[in-house]
């Protein structure tokens, strides 16, 4: 187990390093001059050159890479070219919103999906099961941006119950939460559908096992069997999927933040690319990738801990 963890950790760190190289390389073949993007089409060549000097765009690529990674290790991600404040400040400013979206979406997803999945498994081959399965099939089939469009149309434009988008800031918590309802709903809709299906099939697998059948035959209450025996044993695939869904959720927040114009990281990355704001793009893409890799790593570790049988071949 210790050896396994060590090997995984080394692999994890190597992955992180590779990601920084890949991101840096891609960002540096990206066409487009940050100076031109900032100063626009009326700028003189002298002004552009002066700005390029200021932004340090003339150093060789390798020098810039090591300077970037070296500084990043000390927590310094450089200055945003476009916003002229530190990247760390920009990211920290927007991180709470994206995290609220991601965690809000994840919690809502897990709660909804477990209830739907276990419920469906318990009613296997009955109307309830078909109903849940059908709903989750539809959920999977609906693009989140379309779900978001429909939600805005219904709740913001026709009913006017909730704001159509934007974010009032945390100083007014009620308004802040209200503006997160529709985005989280749009995110949850799709994610919960995926997880509900996994939960259902995992639960069904467990229910086929002998000890559950025995427990049933011995007349244990159904609810107790479900929550005490089925759910814990079905957790392995569920945890895996929840972990992997984080990757989808990250993508999801990028799209959803752009549909609801929420000032989070997903919107920032789009703006940063359009602005040719290299330090910011590098930091954000790396950040997204690091989140996903870290979650993957944790899932692997948890996976082995829950199900030690697998570590021999894993």
């Amino acid at each position: 187990m210790g050896y396994f963890l060590l090997r995984r950790t080394v692999g994890f760190l190597a992955t992180l390093l590779t990601i920084t190289v890949v991101v840096f390389a891609v960002m540096n073949i990206l066409p487009g001059d940050p100076a031109l993007t900032i100063l626009g089409i009326e700028a003189s060549e002298a002004a552009l050159e002066a700005l390029r000097q200021q932004l340090g765009l003339h150093d060789p690529v390798v020098v810039r890479y090591f300077r970037w990674v070296g500084a990043a290790l000390t927590g310094d991600f450089g200055m945003s070219h476009a916003y002229r404040v530190s990247v760390a400040e920009l990211v920290l400013e927007r991180l709470p919103l994206t995290l609220s979206l991601a965690f809000g979406g994840m919690i809502a997803t897990v709660v909804l999906a477990l209830a739907m999945g276990i419920g469906a498994a318990a009613n296997h081959r009955k109307a309830g099961d078909w109903g849940v399965m059908f709903l989750s099939q539809i959920g999977i089939a609906v693009p989140s941006f379309w779900a978001a469009m429909l939600l805005v149309l219904l709740f913001a434009v026709y009913l006017q119950w909730l704001p159509p988008g934007g974010f009032p800031g945390w100083s007014d918590p009620v308004a802040a939460l209200r503006s997160l309802v529709l985005p989280i709903a749009a995110l949850t809709f799709v994610q919960a559908a995926v997880l509900a299906r996994v939960t259902r099939s995992a639960a069904l697998e467990v229910m086929r096992l002998d000890y559950v059948r025995t427990a049933r035959a011995m007349g244990y209450p159904r609810r107790r069997i479900l929550w005490r025996h089925v759910l814990p044993n079905a957790l392995v695939p569920i945890v895996t999927i929840v972990g992997l869904q984080f990757a989808t959720l990250v993508t999801g927040t990028i799209v959803i933040e752009n549909v609801f114009y929420l000032p989070g990281l997903g919107r920032l990355v789009f703006q940063a690319i359009a602005n040719r704001d290299l330090p910011l793009v590098q930091a954000l893409v790396t950040l997204f990738a690091v989140i996903v890799v870290t979650v993957n790593f944790l899932v692997d570790v948890i996976y082995v801990m829950i199900d030690p049988r697998l570590k021999t071949r894993a």
Partner: peptide, 17 residues
């Protein structure tokens, strides 16, 4: 894993850029 770490959207944004 590295492949997984790049959400398709980010990858597509970088490619199309």
């Amino acid at each position: 894993d590295i492949g997984f770490a790049f959400p398709a959207l980010l990858f597509a944004i970088m490619l199309s850029a």
